Simulated scan of single mutants.
Amino acid sequence: MPRACNCFTRAWRSSPIGLLNVWLADQVRRAMEATRGQLLLERLLPGVARAALKDPLSLLDAPRSVEATLLVTDLRGFTSLSERMEPGDVFEMLNQLQGALSEAVHACGGIVDKFMGDGMLAVFGATEPGHDHARRAIEAVRRIRAALDEQNRLRSAGLRIGIGVHSGTVVAGCLGGGSRLEFTVIGDAVNTTSRLEAMTKDKGVDVLVSEETVQRVPEVTFEDLGVAPVRGRQQGIRVFTLKS
Rank of each mutant, 00 (worst) to 15 (best):
A126T: 11
A126E: 10
H131K: 15
H131I: 11
D132H: 10
H133I: 00
H133Q: 02
H133V: 00
A134D: 01
A134M: 06
A134H: 08
R135T: 08
R135M: 10
R135N: 09
R136N: 11
R136P: 00
I138P: 02
I138C: 09
I138L: 13
E139Y: 08
E139L: 11
E139A: 14
A140L: 06
A140H: 02
A140V: 02
V141F: 06
R143K: 13
A146I: 15
A146D: 10
A147S: 07
D149T: 11
D149S: 13
D149E: 12
E150M: 14
E150Q: 14
Q151E: 14
N152W: 08
N152R: 13
R153Q: 15
R153H: 14
R153A: 09
R153F: 15
S156R: 14
S156I: 10
G158Q: 08
G158I: 13
R160H: 02
R160S: 06
G162F: 07
G162L: 03
G162S: 04
G164N: 07
V165N: 03
S167K: 08
T169V: 10
T169A: 12
T169P: 06
T169K: 09
V170Q: 09
V170T: 02
V171W: 07
A172D: 09
S179G: 05
S179I: 15
L181M: 13
L181F: 01
E182R: 07
E182Y: 04
T184L: 03
V185Y: 09
I186A: 15
I186M: 12
G187A: 09
G187E: 05
D188N: 12
D188R: 15
N191I: 09
L196Q: 10
L196A: 11
L196D: 03
M199Q: 07
T200E: 12
T200V: 10
D202P: 00
D202V: 06
G204C: 11
G204S: 07
G204D: 05
V207H: 01
S210M: 04
E211L: 12
E212I: 06
V214Q: 00
V214Y: 01
Q215V: 12
R216F: 02
P218I: 01
T221Q: 05
F222I: 12
F222T: 11
F222H: 02
E223M: 09
D224H: 01
D224G: 04
V227G: 14
A228D: 13
P229F: 11
V230Y: 08
R233I: 04
R233N: 05
Q234K: 14
